[in-house]
Amino acid sequence: MSRAYKIFRAVALAVVVISLLLPLLWMVSASFKTNVDIYDSGKALVFSPTFDNYTKVLQQANYLQFIGNSLWVAFAATALSLLLGVPAAYSMSRFTMRRSALVVLMARVIPGVSLLVPWYYVFSNLRLVGGFTVLILSHMFVSLPLIVYIMMGFFDGLPTELEESAQVDGLTPIGAFRRITLPLSAPGIATAGILSFIFSWNNFMFALVLSGADTKTLPVAIFDFVGYASIDWGGLMAASTVVTLPIMLIALFVQKYVVSGLTAGATKG
């Protein structure tokens, strides 16, 4: 039974890995093909690679500007969400503000598409549509509830005795938070920040409606390769690879920190 279980586990793991990696491998390989080769099933594995698609993406399609836009929006939304979300999560955790936490959860559960029309109406009247401000604020709608809920679980796991001891030694509650609680919660903050950055980088719906020609982010800019009568599959796959590669590298190098931060907030106490 033990041997049969090991074989079953290996087969199941192989199936899952192949099913997840196969689309990515096809995307990367197609980015080095011409459109003719992509449609030719005989050149699925053996083909003459070309870098024309990446040249088109990085030089002719202003993708360096779009990369900068995505970095700026994701970084600003994450930084502002951390600045607001960490103190909010601490207050909700220490003062058992469960109703406020429920409101934050509702904001996380509400589909973003249901808010796009009123957002567009409000921001268009404020003449903000097409700028970076509206993109950062809309991305914070996803990032802020995520950060609050991750950090609430982390703060719940930190013992209050540490802060009480610091206050006995003369620190104010805010001083105890800055000097004791905040450094101890660094793994949770890193986890929340990384996940927030990834969600903001991948966000497509808000940027599609609220961005302008000069503020496009990468997920929206990909659609420049989708025309009314035809699709530039080579350029589309190269652009998709450009979007995916940074997030894959980030996930590869920080996965242990994300896992340790999540498990620390879930198991302490």
Rank of each mutant, 00 (worst) to 15 (best):
N35K: 08
V36G: 12
I38R: 00
I38G: 06
Y39E: 12
Y39H: 11
Y39G: 15
D40S: 12
S41A: 11
S41L: 13
K43D: 07
A44C: 03
A44R: 10
V46G: 07
P49C: 00
P49F: 05
N53A: 02
Y54A: 06
T55L: 10
T55R: 12
T55C: 04
K56H: 08
K56R: 11
L58V: 11
A61T: 00
A61M: 14
Y63K: 06
Y63D: 05
L64Y: 09
F66C: 00
F66E: 09
I67G: 01
G68E: 05
N69I: 03
N69M: 07
N69G: 01
N69V: 04
S70F: 00
S70R: 09
S70W: 09
L71W: 08
W72N: 12
V73I: 10
V73H: 03
F75H: 03
F75A: 15
A76S: 07
A76M: 11
T78I: 00
L80S: 00
S81M: 04
S81V: 01
S81N: 09
L82A: 06
L83Y: 05
V86S: 09
P87W: 11
P87T: 10
A89S: 04
Y90I: 01
S91W: 14
M92C: 10
S93R: 02
F95Y: 04
F95S: 09
T96P: 04
T96H: 15
R98F: 13
R98A: 12
R99P: 02
S100E: 13
S100L: 15
S100W: 14
A101R: 14
L102V: 05
V103D: 01
V103I: 08
V104W: 00
V104L: 03
L105D: 06
M106S: 13
M106Y: 12
A107N: 11
A107Y: 09
A107Q: 10
V109S: 11
V109Q: 10
P111L: 02
P111T: 00
P111H: 04
G112I: 13
V113C: 07
V113A: 08
S114D: 08
S114F: 13
L115P: 03
L115D: 08
L116H: 00
